[in-house]
Structure formats: structure tokens, C-alpha cells
């Protein structure tokens, strides 16, 4: 019998995702694992999981992994990458962070890592709220969106504007790759994996800071079914947060 699918080697054996039904974190981690397998990186990787739903990364991913304090993943990754170089070792280092983690509490560490051109990769899950703490307004919460701390909907006058993370990171000189993808249908999932792969390959080639923002569902906090969540991403959110590559140092050359 021909085997058409098997669990990626970079996923722990017998692990079951514990994320809410319809949450895209599980799929995102699976894609990361597949790319690690395909690039043969598993045994040479150190992953940084940050506070938020992303922290559970190390329950599922079968690679060396460290948990960072909320928001500091890029600083921790900087330390790991640089320390190994000081020890004459080259490791593959990536962070897996929420949007609140990366773009709110950790914006300073994130932006400066990109500005320095730290040779690390970042996967940032944008679910337009602070998921783990129960769906409060975060830096990416869109105008009009109801959350537990913007109960009447986010409005500019009262709450100010959200951040477009991938666009901002693309502006940094040290960034070699910045893209936004989604996991709302098969076509987008295939594209997401391609961009993650590029992001990781660029680190292997020492090109600088590489970044992929994944527009992700949060059915529990959005109070939508999984399929309606993906519909929302496809029809509404991707209008506000365009799914595209904002910087690719190789294309620009």
C-alpha cells in the first residue's frame, strides 16, 4: 500500500493538539514542522515559544525549545543565535509568537531585532486579539471589532488604530523577508507553507531577519464557528490585512 501522508518527524509522537476547535495554531505548527522536516533542520533547531497560546509549541514540536517571557522572544532568540556563533556553532533559530506578544508588549524587542538584521526567523500568529487571556483588544484588533475590552467595538477616537505588522517589519533595513499569509482555505494553506519555507531558507542563507505573519482564526473569542471564522478571514480581515509579500530581498535585487 502506498503511504500518502504521515505526521511530520518534527511533531512529537502521539501528541494531540489541545487548541480550541477551529483554532489555526495547530495547523500553523504543523506547517512549521513540515518545513523543518523538508529543510532537514530538526536536529539543528532551537525554537523560542512565547507567552500566549503559542507557548504550547513545545508540547507538540519535537525540537529543542525554550519559553520566553511575554514579548521577549526575539531578544531570547538573539541571545541563542549569537551565543552559538560565539561557540563556533551555527544553529537554526526561530520564534513562534502571538501578535500581542510580538507587536504589543514585545514591539521594542521585535523591531530592534529586525532593525539589527538578526539572522533569525519569526512566525507571528495574528488572531486580532489576546487569545490566551480570553479575547481582549490587542494591537491588531480591527476597527469595529468587539472584544472583552472594546465591548462597543474598536473605534479610532477612543482606542486608536491597529498595527499592520508585516508592513512595518518590511520597512526595517535588516529585514530580508516579510509576508502575511492566511490558513483560511487550501490555496492559502499551500501558499502559507511556501512562504514559511522561504522565510526559513533565508535564515539558512544568512540574509537577515525573516518574518511571516499568519492571519489566524480564534473561533472561541470571536464567538464564531470554525467555518465562519475562516470566512471572516477570507472576506473581511484579508481586506484590512492584505495577504502578500511586503519585502523579499531577492526579488527587490
Amino acid at each position: 500500500m502506498q503511504q500518502v501522508y504521515s505526521t511530520p518527524k518534527s511533531i512529537k509522537k502521539d501528541s494531540t493538539f489541545t487548541f480550541c476547535a477551529g483554532c489555526d495554531h495547530g495547523l500553523a505548527i504543523k506547517l512549521v514542522a513540515e518545513v523543518l522536516d523538508e529543510l532537514n533542520l530538526r536536529e539543528n533547531t532551537i525554537a523560542v515559544a512565547s507567552s500566549g497560546c503559542s507557548v504550547f509549541l513545545y508540547d507538540f514540536l519535537d525540537v529543542d525549545c525554550i519559553e520566553s517571557p511575554h514579548g521577549r522572544a526575539c531578544a531570547v532568540a538573539t541571545g541563542i543565535k549569537r551565543a552559538h556563533r560565539a561557540l563556533n556553532e551555527e544553529k537554526f533559530v526561530f520564534t513562534y509568537q502571538g501578535d500581542g506578544d510580538f507587536a504589543s508588549i514585545g514591539l521594542s524587542e521585535s523591531l530592534h531585532s529586525a532593525l539589527r538584521g538578526e539572522n533569525i526567523s519569526v512566525i507571528c500568529i495574528n488572531n486580532t486579539n489576546y487569545g490566551m487571556t480570553g479575547g481582549q483588544m490587542g494591537p491588531t484588533t480591527v476597527l469595529g471589532q468587539h472584544t472583552t475590552t472594546s465591548p462597543n467595538g474598536r473605534n479610532v477616537k477612543y482606542h486608536g488604530y491597529p498595527i499592520k505588522t508585516a508592513e512595518q517589519i518590511a520597512l526595517c533595513d535588516g529585514t530580508c523577508f516579510s509576508a502575511r499569509v492566511a490558513l483560511c482555505d487550501i490555496k492559502n494553506i499551500i501558499n502559507a507553507k511556501e512562504q514559511i519555507k522561504k522565510c526559513f531558507e533565508y535564515q539558512k542563507q544568512n540574509l537577515g531577519f525573516s518574518f511571516v505573519e499568519i492571519l489566524s482564526s480564534c473561533p472561541t473569542n470571536w464567538k464564531l464557528s470554525p467555518s465562519d471564522s475562516h470566512k471572516k478571514i477570507k472576506e473581511e480581515l484579508s481586506e484590512i490585512y492584505p495577504l502578500k509579500v511586503f519585502k523579499d530581498i531577492k526579488e527587490n535585487d
Binding site: 532551537i46 523560542v48 517571557p69 541571545g79 551565543a83 552559538h84 561557540l87 521594542s108
Partner: peptide, 17 residues
């Protein structure tokens, strides 16, 4: 804040930090 978190990363790599 960044400095001490870089220390966390470096120390976990086994380098004197």
C-alpha cells in the same frame, strides 16, 4: 529588558553569559 532576555537565550545555549 532586552539585555537580560538575550542572556536567557545565550545561557540556554551553554555559553558563559
Amino acid at each position: 529588558i532586552a539585555a537580560i532576555n538575550m542572556c536567557i537565550g545565550a545561557s540556554s545555549s551553554g555559553a558563559k553569559t
